[in-house]
Write a protein that binds this DNA or RNA. Sequence first.
DNA 1: CCAAAAGTGTTTTTCCTACACCCATGT
DNA 2: ACATGGGTGTAGGAAAAACACTTTTGG
Lengths: 229, 229
Amino acid sequence: MAKHPSGESLHFAILAVDTALFTIRSGELLVRMVRVNRPPHFAGSKGLPGGLIEPKETAHQAAMRHVHTKACIEPQKIYAEQLYTFSEVERDPRGRVVAVAYLALVPWESLSPAEQAGSAESWWATPGEAKKLAYDHDEILLVALARLRSRTTYTTLMGKLLPKEFTLTELERAYESVLKTDLDKRNFRKKILKVGVLSELPRKRADGPHRPAQLYKFSSSKVEYIEVL
Amino acid sequence: MAKHPSGESLHFAILAVDTALFTIRSGELLVRMVRVNRPPHFAGSKGLPGGLIEPKETAHQAAMRHVHTKACIEPQKIYAEQLYTFSEVERDPRGRVVAVAYLALVPWESLSPAEQAGSAESWWATPGEAKKLAYDHDEILLVALARLRSRTTYTTLMGKLLPKEFTLTELERAYESVLKTDLDKRNFRKKILKVGVLSELPRKRADGPHRPAQLYKFSSSKVEYIEVL
DNA sequence: CCAAAAGTGTTTTTCCTACACCCATGT
DNA sequence: ACATGGGTGTAGGAAAAACACTTTTGG
């Protein structure tokens, strides 16, 4: 018999959502953590933001609701896509809980100062720091990272991690930090401009003792398929 | 409040699975259909095989159990991977049911005569015939077809649709029927042999008034990533 | 000997890779 | 004037695409 966290017994599995929410701060990939305190199994622990699905909301809506209440990030700033559904019988020691996991992205620049800073309840961590998480969240995070890297190579998903306007160097740094590789500056620019998903803006950014950089944006707000990076 | 198909009311969404099971018969892609008779919404209808998840089984196990009982195909012959979780609130008019959908494949040659022939309860249909399905199964089938096509281009998933031994022409036909394109015979052979996922068998097949064809198998039973077709 | 599918190589074009210097600016 | 990051082109090699004839067999 499954047991709801409230203590109520159920004849069926109950449904939850968990979200791996990423951002990039100065070229470094970060994931949003929340404090988890659920004795006896997970006291003083941490994990991904998540919670139960209500009968009248979709999994996506539930994921965004819990990101809002638990991770304290405004959902309308977030891009999210379904990642995988984790249904191992023993994944939650308190009862039968099946989790629909989401991969979510938010541009650092769209976050408020409070959202950037975090708190004792929810904060940004590097994937390297996000270990020993509650439930099966270590596994969910690994799957999310793999999916993020994979989709980064053949879609314009990166547009959901960057601010609306960016330089080609910033775009290249973002790819390098997600993919953990070094890219050749000239070849990267040739390729990304050739596939035609970027628009040149009528503006440049001057931010130091050097030539100002041309600003670009992604032409479409849709995540599109492109040929490899 | 969600309602279980039994009539029982629940405070939470309940969990089901649905499986899009494909095979290839003489170069033609087929999907397994089951009769659906659930008045008042779906009387004398058809759909994908599926059903509820029991508290002590994973979604994958539940999918295979229902393929066995409803679609009458032996699960151990089947390769299945998770497709997507459908959680629209109104997807099942009888109550709140969230479905974990699976993409499944089986080689036609591994099916028993009864499994090949089908019955009034479950049968093989072309995707073109599989329209106006119960629930949201039209959408699930579309997503499954898209995923099958997509994964076919960058993995060895095709190995799960073909018999253990096959000729290069059969392999090419299978790719052509799934991808709905024509491939160049010489380029196809060069590429598929170069990536090194096939093993030549010490045998040929003579099946007509023409030169016998060399038989091959996939070297690994794992679905591997390969570079594009 | 004829029909039918199996099998095979070369040329052209395209794409990827590696690589080094000048440009525009702020101090 | 100099330090800093922005921006550009080309040559060589690898992979993809286009394309037609010979081989082996059964009837």
